[in-house]
C-alpha cells in the first residue's frame, strides 16, 4: 500500500511539473501568421499581360520577373471544370491574401525532361510567385503523366514546412488526389497550408514537446520507481540461498571427459521483405533551384 502511495506521489509531482508546458501551449493559441504584411505590395494573382513574355522566356534567361505572370491556379492538365477552377482560384486567392504568402497550384500532363522538383521550382521562380522580399510561398505541382506530385516552398515557408508538416499536408490532400477528386484535393491543400502557417509551427512544436514530456514522464517515472523499489529490496534483503557451490570446488576444477555435438536437423524460414514503397513522398530539404533561389520541397507519387 505504501508503495502504491509512493507511485501516486511520483506521478502527481511529475504532472505538476508538466503544467508550464500546458501554459505555454495555451498562451500561444492567439498566434496568427508569422509573416508581416508587406504594405503596398501589388496583386500577386494578377495574370500576365497578354503582350508580355511567358514564364519559359524568363526561364531561358534565368531571371525572376518583377511581376507575377500567372494566376495562383494554372490547370494545364485540365483536371478541373471551369466552375471548379474559379472556386479553387478564389480559395487560393483568399488564403494567399489573408496569409500574405503565395499558395499556388499547377497541374500539368507532362513535365518533359524535367523532374517534378525542378519543374515546380522553376515554375514558381520564373512566374514571379511569392510575397515580400523573400518571395514567401508554396506551390503544389500535379503531373498526370507519371502521377507525380511535388510541393515546393520558398522564402519563410522553407523553414516553416519541415518533414512533419509535409506529412500533415500529404495526409490532408493526397487521398483526394489518388481518388481523382482534384477540386477537393486542392481545397484541402490550401486549407492545411493555412492551418500550418497560422500555427506558425510554434503550437505544433509545443504540442510535440508536451507529448514528448508526457511520454518521458510516464516511462521514466515507471522505470525509476521500479528500479528504486528493486534496489531498496535488494539492499534491505540481501539474505538468500547460495546459487552455486563454487567456493567448495576441490583444486583442479571441472574435468571434461567427453564432449559431443551432434547435428540433428535444421529449419529454414523465409520472410518476404517488400521493396520500399514508391508512392511515399521524398523528404523535404533545402536546395537551390536553377534561378539560384533556395527552395524546400517534398513530393512523390499518388
Amino acid at each position: 500500500m505504501k508503495k502504491i502511495i509512493a507511485i501516486c506521489f511520483t506521478v502527481i509531482l511529475a504532472v505538476f511539473s508538466a503544467l508550464p508546458v500546458f501554459a505555454l501551449t495555451d498562451a500561444d493559441e492567439g498566434f496568427t501568421s508569422p509573416f508581416s504584411y508587406a504594405e503596398g505590395y501589388d496583386g500577386y494573382i494578377q495574370p500576365a499581360p497578354s503582350d508580355s513574355y511567358d514564364w519559359t522566356y524568363y526561364r531561358s534567361l534565368r531571371q525572376i520577373p518583377s511581376k507575377t505572370l500567372s494566376p495562383l491556379l494554372v490547370d494545364n492538365g485540365n483536371l478541373l471544370t471551369s466552375s471548379e477552377q474559379a472556386h479553387v482560384l478564389s480559395v487560393l486567392s483568399e488564403k494567399s491574401e489573408e496569409l500574405n504568402v503565395s499558395i499556388a497550384v499547377l497541374t500539368q500532363y507532362s513535365l518533359g525532361q524535367y523532374s517534378p522538383e525542378v519543374y515546380a521550382d522553376d515554375f514558381y521562380d520564373y512566374n514571379g510567385y511569392g510575397k515580400g522580399e523573400n518571395r514567401d510561398g508554396i506551390l503544389l505541382l500535379v503531373s498526370m503523366e507519371y502521377r507525380d506530385y511535388h510541393i515546393t516552398t520558398c522564402g519563410s515557408c522553407v523553414d516553416l514546412f519541415g518533414e512533419a508538416e509535409f506529412e500533415e499536408l500529404d495526409d490532408a490532400f493526397l487521398s483526394y488526389l489518388g481518388d481523382g477528386d482534384y477540386c477537393e484535393a486542392f481545397e484541402a491543400f490550401a486549407s492545411e497550408v493555412e492551418t500550418i502557417i497560422l500555427n506558425g509551427g510554434a503550437v505544433k512544436a509545443h504540442k510535440n514537446a508536451l507529448k514528448v514530456f508526457l511520454i518521458c514522464l510516464v516511462v521514466c517515472s515507471a522505470v525509476s520507481t521500479v528500479i528504486v523499489i528493486l534496489i531498496s529490496k535488494s539492499s534491505s534483503k540481501p539474505v538468500r540461498y547460495a546459487s552455486n557451490a563454487a567456493d567448495y570446488h576441490v583444486p583442479g576444477g571441472l574435468n571434461l571427459t567427453n564432449t559431443r555435438d551432434i547435428f540433428l536437423y535444421k529449419n529454414v524460414t523465409k520472410h518476404y521483405n517488400p521493396p520500399s514503397d514508391s508512392s511515399s513522398g521524398g523528404s523535404g530539404h533545402s536546395h537551390t533551384s536553377s534561378s539560384g533561389s533556395s527552395h524546400g520541397g517534398h513530393g512523390g507519387k499518388f
Binding site: L254, N255, L256, T257, N258, T259, R260, D261, I262, F263, L264, Y265, K266, N267
Partner: peptide
C-alpha cells in the same frame, strides 16, 4: 539444432 553432450 544440435544435441550437445558434455560429460565430466
Amino acid at each position: 539444432y544440435f544435441a550437445v553432450v558434455r560429460q565430466g
